[in-house]
Nucleic acid binder design. Structure first.
Length: 595
RNA sequence: GCCCCCAUCGUCUAGAGGCCUAGGACGUCGGGUUCUCAGCCCGAUAACAGGGGUUCGAAUCCCCUUGGGGGUACCA
């Protein structure tokens, strides 16, 4: 049996215990696949490696004897953003899976910029994307800013490579110059549609010789280059997540690979780059599955070994299975959970004086989360579980744990819809686990940008912020939530009151106010002014007056913070200190008297 | 239209023919705890798209239907 005959999954395992170690499907002839399987085995064992077929339900005896001398191919993956000016959350998921796969197998992850279509300002449009990846902790071994042995990593700078490929394709007859006008092809397409058959270009304006080309050109026609797609036979792809997929060649088009102006199109460029960059695994979104045949055709015509393909399901819209796009923001905002996350972000952005536009600031775009104060680890953890799972219970993964456990085998086939609520739940868990010191550092810039703390901060900021964050506990879900606690950072005479709370707890509650005035004098002498002493003092006061705690505590909270809801009352008093507490009670009482 | 992919609670998922009376998480709804809020604890709700096979036995394998998604560009 030869490898090219094998269309089954390839596996390898540790001979010692036959433990299943790693699996890869192979697309017919790719030696690269075998090498990659072996290299993956190398990462888990140092002994001899057997390669054989894996069958659902069991491992079959090895078909090849251990062959330790086979060259070990490096795992190299890539993510290819186009410079659009923002980093889409779905793109991050794809990049994450590429990154995890490379890291898991000790390979490289690279970034290549798909700017065949863009003209200017690529750098500016790229910056938010690179910043986003950096913020998320997804690092790249080769690509923009870091360079690498295969530079340049911008498609716009690689046209010479593409031209060489086009020339070779033309020379071998795998591609041809075509002089049809757009309308002429369009007419054929419509005719096919009318007759309910698959459109196949007639090649009526195909020029296979220079003389033919010259003749067309003399008519004033302009030539593009098309691939000469086979018209019969079937292409079989063994996709690492979808398994065996077959495409009849007859349904494929003679796609254009080079425009009349000499610029090349994505499919050509992508195939050439993947070869040049020695990409071993092409891991990308499902939208490219149907595009794979034309890419395979180009690669094979060029004599390139094929990479392994893995097509990931989409990240779908909240509550739907449609691919998520930032263009349909209006629609997503009708989803209550999505809107909630969006509105909270907007509120924080406004409080820190951030000018936002829906284009670049919304929950589909990564920058949103950074600005609002989410934790990168929470987002990564959430995204990891969108289409992948380890088992039926593990949910929290450190970076090391996700790298150690990730595998393409466990990627789901069905699209997963983006659930803002679940993301928030991860964020809460991570925020909660964050050490106080880091929380302080995370939150401080928000207070500064909102003008509540100067920059550089006064020296009592650290302790006060720590005290506030401790008292706040899990009320701070994202860093920007600290702005909900502004009452601890404003001057006593600048405190704002929630009118509804003021009405309910003070104006409409004269008996509470009377108690408040009385307790104020007690507060003036409590020593020390700390939580246990304050609590004891209040309990004593309540007992002496024969009242319930609730009769005074709410009034006191409104007087101190201006709000009806907040931290524990004794925490609040202790943080404010005696002086502020008394001043605020006096101010509230005065306000009451004034109205 | 044609081609390709997909299908388990509202959502993310576990599930490799008997461990399934289908498990976990998020959400939702009750109850408890606390000075409010947040949290926490306890409980409940809720799914194998439909129909045919194969098999002693099907969420799991096969076929059909339905539904969803993607492709069919001189976009990426």
């Amino acid at each position: 049996m030869t490898w090219s005959e094998s269309r089954c999954g390839l596996s390898c395992w540790r001979p010692a215990n036959s433990d299943f170690a790693s699996q890869a499907a192979t697309n017919g002839a790719t030696l690269c696949a075998i090498q990659s399987v072996i290299s993956r085995c190398r990462s888990v064992t140092s002994g001899p490696v057997s390669v054989g077929l894996r069958h659902r339900g069991g491992i079959w005896p090895p078909l090849l004897p251990p062959c330790p001398d086979l060259p070990v191919a490096m795992v190299r993956t890539r993510f290819a953003p186009s410079p659009t000016g923002y980093l889409h959350i779905g793109g991050v998921r794809t990049a994450l899976f590429n990154w995890l796969f490379a890291r898991k197998h000790g390979g490289q992850f690279l970034l290549r910029i798909d700017d065949t279509d863009q003209q200017r300002n690529v750098e500016a449009a790229l910056k938010p994307i690179l910043d986003g990846f950096r913020w998320l902790g997804i690092d790249w071994d080769e690509g923009p800013e870091v360079g690498g042995p295969h530079a340049p990593y911008y498609q716009s700078q690689r046209s010479a490579r593409y031209q060489t490929a086009v020339d070779r394709l033309l020379e071998s007859g795998a591609a041809y110059r075509d002089f049809a006008k757009t309308e002429e092809v369009q007419a054929e397409r419509e005719a096919a549609k009318k007759e309910e058959r698959t459109f196949v270009y007639s090649r009526r304006f195909m020029a296979e010789t220079d003389a033919q080309a010259a003749a067309f050109e003399s008519e004033g026609r302009q030539g593009v280059v098309r691939i000469k797609t086979p018209r019969d036979g079937t292409l079989v792809i063994d996709d690492l997540v979808r398994g065996r997929v077959e495409f009849p060649w007859a349904n494929e088009q003679d796609h254009v690979i080079q425009r009349a102006d000499g610029t090349c199109l994505y499919h050509l460029a992508s195939v050439v780059d993947d070869f040049d960059f020695q990409i071993s695994h092409v891991i990308r979104a499902e939208e490219h599955l149907s595009n794979t045949p034309r890419q395979v055709f180009i690669a094979q015509a060029l004599g390139y070994p094929l990479p392994q393909y893995a097509h990931l399901p989409y990240v779908a819209e909240p509550g739907s299975k449609t691919k998520m796009s930032k263009r349909k923001l209006d629609k997503y905002l009708k989803n209550v959970d999505f809107k909630k996350v969006n509105d909270q972000g907007l509120k924080i952005a406004q409080a820190i004086g951030l000018t936002t536009s829906a284009e670049t600031f919304n929950p589909v775009i990564v920058d949103f989360y950074e600005q609002v104060g989410y934790l990168p680890d929470a987002i990564i953890n959430y995204l990891l579980l969108l289409g992948w799972s380890l088992d039926d219970k593990t949910e929290i993964f450190s970076r090391d744990a996700m790298i150690a456990n990730f595998s393409l085998e466990r990627v789901n086939k069905a699209p997963a819809s983006f659930d803002p609520q679940k993301l928030v739940s991860f964020q809460e868990r991570y925020m909660n686990a964050l050490p106080l010191k880091q929380k302080v550092a995370l939150v401080l810039p928000y207070l500064q940008r909102a003008g509540l703390i100067s920059s550089p901060p006064p020296c009592d900021t650290g302790p006060r912020l720590s005290a506030v964050l401790t008292a706040a506990g899990d009320r701070i879900k994202v860093a920007g939530d600290i702005l909900e606690c502004r009452e601890f950072f404003v001057a006593d005479d600048a405190l704002e009151y929630d009118e509804a709370a003021f009405q309910k707890r003070l104006r409409d509650a004269p008996e509470s106010v009377a108690l408040l005035r009385k307790f104020r004098d007690r507060l003036a002498t409590v020593e020390p002014f700390d939580v246990p002493t304050l609590e004891a003092a209040l309990n004593e006061f309540v007992a002496a007056e024969g009242i319930k705690v609730a009769q005074i505590i709410h009034a006191l909270r409104v007087a101190l913070t201006g709000k009806g809801v907040g931290f524990g009352l004794f925490d609040t008093l202790a943080i404010l200190g005696r002086e502020s507490s008394l001043a605020r009670i006096d101010r509230a009482v005065a306000k009451l008297a004034a109205s």
